[in-house]
């Protein structure tokens, strides 16, 4: 059994709205082992980004965690004092966000932004921080790294800016790198560069990675294990190969069927999932997917299914569905 690095249990996040509090994350269970890459997949509004932000105390105003725990290397992040959390954030947990243009400071040189985190967390002096910043830029494959320390963010291309973000995320040798849609704003050839870069770095540095995305094809080649989120809950959690080969939740199956493929059969029409995901605050009473589910039965509309191991499989494969087991056994 590998060692657990991050263990999120029953996490709840709510938003204050004019009509009262709306639940956006409703009991998420997630874990990441040491050296593992977890893919967190879901559509907009499923709570994948909020979940990760909540771990390091970066939720926007009016959005609060209201329940659950998130143990990181044994300590509950949700119950840490702000000062302790500051030490973890950017230290043992590194972050890479989707849009480097809004997360980099536009009036600060690249080098200074890198050194800021090194001086804060690693207590390096100026010269040492500068040297390490240069090494980091080299590590993420920025040509002319030393000179680039003097550049401002706007002087770099989108792909280069994202490399800088990754360098900042990696600055303090984190145990865990959380990458939130880091390639969504990038072109596909640049995306390929970044993916290869993170894969290589992960192997060299031996860290764990959580990669948040809506892109199933992208995550296929990246993740060891994948958690599929729907409307603020984990509906399925399985090793990547298993999830693609033998998806158990009707939502996962629908998602996989609705993406066009680059190779192979080309059917005339894609199969699609009817309807739209529920809005926060208007969640159905039972299974959140029940209103769109082709297999929904009466109980699905009343009772929320728990995330439980699939029956009769050797590998850990968890699914939150009342009918999944039965449908599989019948098939």
């Amino acid at each position: 059994m590998s060692e657990r690095l991050l263990d999120v249990r029953d996490l709840k996040i709510e938003i204050d709205t004019r009509r009262g509090r709306a639940v956006v994350v409703d009991g998420i269970d997630l874990h990441v082992d040491k050296g593992e890459t977890l893919g967190v997949v879901g559509e907009s509004g499923c709570g994948k980004s909020l979940t990760m932000l909540s771990l390091v105390g970066l939720l926007p105003n009016r959005i609060h965690t209201t329940g659950g725990s998130a143990h990181f290397a044994g300590t509950d992040l949700l119950r840490m004092q702000p000062a302790e959390l500051r030490a973890v954030r950017g230290g043992r947990i590194g972050f890479v966000f989707q849009d480097p243009m809004t997360s980099l400071n536009p009036v600060m040189r690249i080098g200074d932004q890198l050194m800021e985190s090194l001086r804060q967390h690693k207590r390096l002096d100026k010269a040492a921080a500068r040297q390490r910043a240069g090494e980091l830029l080299k590590l993420v494959g920025i040509p002319g790294a030393e000179q680039r320390l003097e550049s401002f963010p706007h002087e770099l291309s989108g792909g280069m800016r994202q490399r800088v973000m990754i360098a900042i995320g990696l600055a303090c040798d984190p145990d865990l790198l959380i990458a939130d849609e880091p390639t969504t704003a990038l072109d596909v050839t640049i995306q390929a560069q970044i993916v290869e870069l993170v894969k290589g770095l992960k192997q060299r540095l031996g860290m764990s990675v959580v990669w948040i995305t809506h892109d199933l094809a992208l995550i296929a080649g990246l993740a060891d294990r994948i958690a599929v989120l729907y409307a603020g809950t984990v509906v399925e959690d399985a090793p990547a190969e298993l999830l693609f080969r033998d998806p158990a939740h009707p939502y996962t199956r629908g998602l996989l069927a609705s993406i066009p493929r680059l190779h192979g059969e080309d059917g005339a029409r894609l199969s699609s999932i009817g309807g739209t995901p529920p809005e926060p605050g208007r969640r159905p009473q039972g299974c959140p997917f029940a209103p769109r589910c082709p297999l929904a039965e009466a109980m699905c509309h009343d009772i929320v299914p728990a995330l439980a191991p699939l029956r009769g499989v050797a590998t850990p494969h968890r699914v939150a569905c009342h009918v999944a087991n039965r449908v599989r056994e019948a098939a």
Binding site: G159, T189, Q193, A217, A220, G221, E241, L262, H263
Partner: peptide, 27 residues
Amino acid sequence: RALLSAVPEADPVAERSRQRQVLEGDV
């Protein structure tokens, strides 16, 4: 060819064995 090679595929097994031709540099 480079563009097609950069597109990820929704298949973990194929992805693992795939030789990707990564374009250097930016546009």
